[in-house]
């Protein structure tokens, strides 16, 4: 009789464990997906911000037209690449990132630009947008890491394997984006 109770208790514990791990896996899988869509949200924010930026700065900085043009062109490419393949979109966004970086660096060099309140606000928005994109990628990778740990580590890997949870793929940063651009306006 005692043996029956013990066996029953163990069975219940195992089932509870499986349920917990399964729910954890579902949660982290969904987190990975929502983190990925968050990146898109922030990229959209960047695309929307650029026309505004061009409007405000085009008169003030006629001596740096090519930097501005590069941003506008990169944005156009990024927007059109959005509906294409993932790889294409990532590459186009990478180009836009570096163009934006150059533009923000240009702002640094012109104190009279920094004095303009409109441009100061815009620059803050721009650096925040770039930060948001970076942080949303970071969060995506953190979520991927969390899921992969669950999928790989024992004994949750048994549950993951039998329910078909797979590795998530990290967001690798494009080479062009790796050059750090330090923006400091205050």
């Amino acid at each position: 009789m005692d043996g029956l109770f013990i066996a029953g208790g163990v069975a219940v514990a195992i089932i509870l464990y499986i349920v917990t791990v399964y729910n954890g896996l579902v949660r982290s899988k969904n987190q990975v997906e929502s983190a990925w869509s968050q990146i898109d949200v922030q990229l959209k924010r960047r695309h929307d911000l650029i026309p505004n930026l061009v409007e405000v700065t085009k008169d003030a900085m006629d001596y740096e037209q090519e930097t501005l043009t590069a941003v506008v062109e990169a944005r156009a490419k990024a927007v059109s690449a959005k509906d294409g393949s993932r790889e294409g979109a990532i590459a186009a966004e990478g180009l836009l990132s570096s163009a934006m970086g150059k533009l923000l660096a240009v702002f640094e060099n012109y104190p009279d630009l920094k004095a303009n309140q409109n441009i100061r606000d815009l620059t803050e928005e721009l650096s925040s947008t770039e930060n948001r994109i970076a942080f949303s990628r970071q969060h995506y990778n953190d979520s991927v890491n969390q899921q992969n740990v669950r999928v790989e580590s024992f004994p949750s890997n048994i549950v993951a394997g039998s329910f078909g949870f797979r590795h998530a793929v990290y967001f690798a940063v494009d080479e062009a984006e790796k050059e750090p651009v330090k923006v400091d306006l205050r």
């Binding site: 922030q42 803050e124 925040s128 930060n131 942080f135 949303s136 979520s143």
Partner: peptide, 16 residues
Amino acid sequence: ERQLHNVVAEMAIASG
């Protein structure tokens, strides 16, 4: 408080 709001939003994004 544009910068403060932005910074809070960024940290919220980083933490999901």
